[in-house]
């Protein structure tokens, strides 16, 4: 394809081809510090094609596809090309990754131990992980946590953090380096989106796994509340939060059943970012 880039995020590598220059240029700037795939061979191909040949020029519209695609994926505006590329990479992982159990979860690490947060879009997990990543935790990912079936360790997938709506201003106030931000994408299907590159240490140490220590089910916009989640409910919610649980077969079953039997889990409700940070601190310190 005319415009292309290849990059490695954690254990996975991608080559991305596009019919337009702009999305690839944006990726190149924001993924500057990420290594190229080993030997130039990528695990996945992502393509940003025009939905129809003439739609490369007239009202440009992107069809996200690649090795794995969805037949009914909605086309996206060229102005949202960076988001399209991110979605393309997520799609390959969600449908094609087999080397780890994929949990739809944000993840941060401290002292070799990992905090996982899982929940629907809008639960606040992504913002919370971004905030913790600026406060002494290592950011491991805001979309997928990768559990190793052989060891139980969690591996990082620290792609760009996808900040949405009010989280954008919140993080702009906390991150001094403007070069870490992508363009503000207005009017996407999820409202306004702005991408944030993780801190340099998160990228430099992305190959290092961590031992899971705590699982949280955050819920933003509620009065403060903490409720333990028993292993059965945890198992059920995590199978629903995994895109490849079924595909991994017995390895996925073993991995997840061990995880819920050994990792404490809490559902936390919070009205704002600061109370969430305080809750996380309390629960994390109570572990020892």
């Amino acid at each position: 394809m005319k415009h292309r880039i290849a990059l490695t995020i954690g254990p996975a590598s991608f080559r991305i081809g596009a019919a337009w220059r702009a999305p690839v240029a944006r990726l190149a700037a924001l993924y500057h510090d990420y290594p190229a795939p080993p030997g130039g061979i990528a695990d996945f191909t992502v393509r940003l094609d025009p939905v129809r040949p003439w739609r490369r020029y007239i009202r440009p519209s992107i069809h996200i596809t690649g090795d794995h695609g969805l037949a009914d994926a909605a086309p996206m505006a060229l102005a949202h090309g960076l988001l399209a590329a991110e979605m393309g990479m997520n799609l390959q992982m969600a449908l094609g990754w087999r080397r780890h159990l994929l949990l739809h979860a944000a993840c941060v690490e401290k002292d070799g131990r990992a905090l996982l947060m899982t929940g629907e879009s809008g639960s606040g997990k992504s913002t919370l992980a971004a905030m913790l990543g600026e406060r002494g935790w290592r950011f491991m990912g805001d979309e997928f946590a990768l559990l190793d079936p052989a060891t139980g360790a969690v591996h990082a997938f620290p792609r760009l953090i996808s900040l949405k709506n009010s989280a954008i201003a919140a993080m702009e106030a906390q991150v001094a380096d403007a070069a870490r931000f992508g363009p503000l994408l207005r009017g996407t299907a999820k409202g306004d989106i702005r991408h944030l590159r993780p801190r340099a240490d998160a990228i430099a140490r992305m190959d290092r796994p961590a031992t899971p220590a705590l699982l949280l089910f955050p819920r933003y916009g509620q009065p403060v509340d903490i409720r333990p989640v028993d292993p059965g409910e945890c198992f059920m919610r995590l199978t629903q939060a995994s895109t490849n649980y079924t595909a991994l077969g017995e390895a996925g079953f073993d991995c997840l059943s061990r995880f819920v039997q050994t990792i404490p889990a809490q559902a936390i409700d919070f009205p704002d970012g600061n109370s969430a940070l305080a809750l996380v601190d309390d629960l994390w310190n109570a572990l020892r």
């Binding site: 028993d230 292993p231 059965g232 198992f235 059920m236 199978t239 649980y245 079924t246 077969g249 017995e250 079953f253 073993d254 059943s257 819920v260 039997q261």
Partner: peptide
């Protein structure tokens, strides 16, 4: 069949179908 009891439920992994049952 792999049978794994949790607190108040039991997980079953059925190898021929690859299905998990709670």
């Amino acid at each position: 069949l792999v049978i794994r009891p949790l607190a108040d439920i039991t997980l079953l992994y059925h190898r021929p179908s690859g299905q998990t049952h709670m």
